[in-house]
Design a protein around this nucleic acid. Sequence first.
DNA 1: GTCGCGTGTGACAGCGATGTCATCAACGGC
DNA 2: GCCGTTGATGACATCGCTGTCACACGCGAC
Lengths: 341, 341
Amino acid sequence: MVTIKDVAREAGVSPKTVSRVVNDDPAVNGKTREAVAEIIRRMHYVPDHAARMMRMSHSSVVGLMTDAVATTPYSVDIVRGTQAGLREQSRTMLIANTDGDPGQEQEYWRVFRAHKVAGVVYATMYHRPVDLGAPDFERGIVLANCYSARRSHSSVVPDDEGGGYTQARHLIELGHRRIGIVSLSPVLRATVLRGAGYRTAFAEGGLLYDPALEIPGFITRPDGGEDLVAYDAALGLLRRADRPTAIICGNDQIAVQIYAAAAALGLSVPDDLSVIGFDDMAVITRTLKPMLTSVALPYFEIGRIAVDILGRVNGEIDGPVVPQVLVPCPLVVRQSCRQLV
Amino acid sequence: MVTIKDVAREAGVSPKTVSRVVNDDPAVNGKTREAVAEIIRRMHYVPDHAARMMRMSHSSVVGLMTDAVATTPYSVDIVRGTQAGLREQSRTMLIANTDGDPGQEQEYWRVFRAHKVAGVVYATMYHRPVDLGAPDFERGIVLANCYSARRSHSSVVPDDEGGGYTQARHLIELGHRRIGIVSLSPVLRATVLRGAGYRTAFAEGGLLYDPALEIPGFITRPDGGEDLVAYDAALGLLRRADRPTAIICGNDQIAVQIYAAAAALGLSVPDDLSVIGFDDMAVITRTLKPMLTSVALPYFEIGRIAVDILGRVNGEIDGPVVPQVLVPCPLVVRQSCRQLV
DNA sequence: GTCGCGTGTGACAGCGATGTCATCAACGGC
DNA sequence: GCCGTTGATGACATCGCTGTCACACGCGAC
């Protein structure tokens, strides 16, 4: 390994001067700076992170602690967003996947402490409350896609209520008056919040919210697993005499089954039935025929913003430390919803 | 921060003894060990990674360099597998996403050098050749889901040919004799390899390979993007007088469109048409009605094995350094293929 | 009593970087 | 010609940890 001393010797200056050049200290003569910089390039000198970190007693690495985010298709974009945010700060990311196991989580908190990470983004796969169990960790922690019931940390979460409102509003604007809903498991926070959004939009549009038209598309089994029953839910809705002209889905997977149910009944999307998804998972929305209109979960943005907030919490970036950021869920219009005359 | 000296003072021993306890050096009296360990627990002492790394001049962190793996639903499992492998070695992972930009990649090689990472897993989203452009990096590098055309590094790749063989073989064993293929873009290596697999299985089963029955489901646009045209491809196949009884898909997204095309023609899966996918993306395979039989891309295993090979390359794990590992693609049987009488 | 040996422990140096403070040359003002 | 100031550079200590080597002690062999 080539060290600062090697460079210093080669350049005929002291190590401290090389250090100054590396760190853009203005108190270096232009000529010296040039010469040293050239030698650094030539020798491929890269300052040792460990030594630097030791001297400066904090690292340029941020920890990303997740239950399963980094490893499931649903919310990987949080990772991408986090990484993008960190890149702007020339930082890197140490990633820890706990698989939801508290033992592993405990272990990784130790790792993060050992690495003196500059902060931690704590992300979850589902939008839900978390309890961090007071890890004795001195640097900032920001929650992404989750929030602290005790309000102990700042959080960045999707605006599920707004997302639900957007879904319903879009259909209402297209002229739909009978709207069915095939929702996520009722135990999820997202379901509750979006339900509130639906009602607001319905009320605004002068529609009545009819509980008979809302059916869960997922049911949670006693063992914690989930069964996707959207197909049957959709059949139930579509066989009614007063068949809805549009269906709001709790996520894009539900939409897949609704397409199938509609096809089975000889109904065409969007001519006979409009469908709007949630999540905007490219793999599904762009694969279905016709392509699925959906409301996006802004995971990339969530990650990015979490990093920003983390900077504020640590006082490295100017700006207020807000307790919670609601990130809007934008509408992505494709071909699955039709304007009623 | 509580340091080794703090612990030493508290325990009334020298820092070196504390160090011995932390590192399980047997040359410590049982009583001393107990006492020191207790104090360590009580004070929440965590050895400083930077200092340790500096002293020992290598890190317990492995770099994961990817083009987009960490951030796309397709191949995130490589990340999970890598992490799982590292966990067994009590290591952690520094993650770098280049978005395919050589400038970023260059930058991250520097970061990895600065961190003195113990090695690098270089993973790509698609199975393809790569040219690492000789980064002056001293520790081991293992390629995951890609390989070096110049054979300069060990690689771990999916056995696409075997996967193709498995798809075809499964259908043949179920009695199918006319099998259509809706493949990935012909420019992909996977397409070529799987094609070879199909032919082998066809030959074994005494079937003729009919080029008219193989149609691309994706086409690559001049701008590099891809268009999913599997729906039309499927219609073409299914409207033939000598309609195939089964279709092999290049991936699971293609299967979605084939389901749709079949439904449009009033054909039922699997009664009138058997469909077998590739990739085994849970979001799709378990969402379709009926659930999709597919051949899995063993991304998790690839990541895991890559870490193992990395250990061998670095001489930390016993075992031969093989130039390439082909990881089998297992068949996952669900409900989309039917036995012909 | 001396020696050798094994066991447990500590003193000390040094890994590579940087903060602090000292040094030194050049220069303008008196 | 002297002094204070400014600008550029270097000497040195230090961050937390561990490898090396030395030392102290107890014990058995001669």
